[in-house]
Simulated scan of single mutants.
Amino acid sequence: MSKKYFPILLDIEKKNILVVGGGKIAYRKIKTLLDYGAEIEVITPKIVEDKIQLLFDEKKIDITLRDFEDSDIENRFLVVGATNNKELNKKIYELGDSKNILVNNITTKKDLNARFCAIHRGENFQVAISTDEGDPKRALELKKQIKVSLEE
Rank of each mutant, 00 (worst) to 15 (best):
G22M: 06
D11W: 07
S130Q: 05
E94W: 02
I12Q: 02
G21K: 07
D57G: 07
V80T: 04
A82T: 11
N104V: 01
F68P: 07
I40P: 05
Y27Q: 09
L150D: 00
I17Y: 06
V127W: 03
C117D: 13
E69T: 06
L78G: 14
V103G: 00
F6Q: 03
I63F: 01
E87Q: 15
A128I: 13
A118C: 05
G81T: 04
G22D: 08
K90R: 15
D135F: 10
A38D: 03
A139P: 01
F125W: 15
K60C: 00
G81I: 02
L18K: 01
K86L: 08
L54H: 08
I119L: 15
S98N: 12
N75F: 04
F6E: 06
V48K: 15
I63S: 00
K147Y: 05
S98Y: 07
E58P: 01
I30F: 04
Q53R: 13
N124T: 10
D135L: 01
D67Y: 09
F125C: 10
S71C: 13
K90Y: 04
E13Y: 14
P7F: 10
L10S: 10
G81H: 08
K91P: 09
D35Q: 14
E87W: 05
S2Q: 13
I25W: 01
D135T: 09
F56Y: 15
Y36F: 15
I43F: 04
G81D: 04
Y27R: 00
K60N: 09
K24D: 12
I106K: 12
E123K: 09
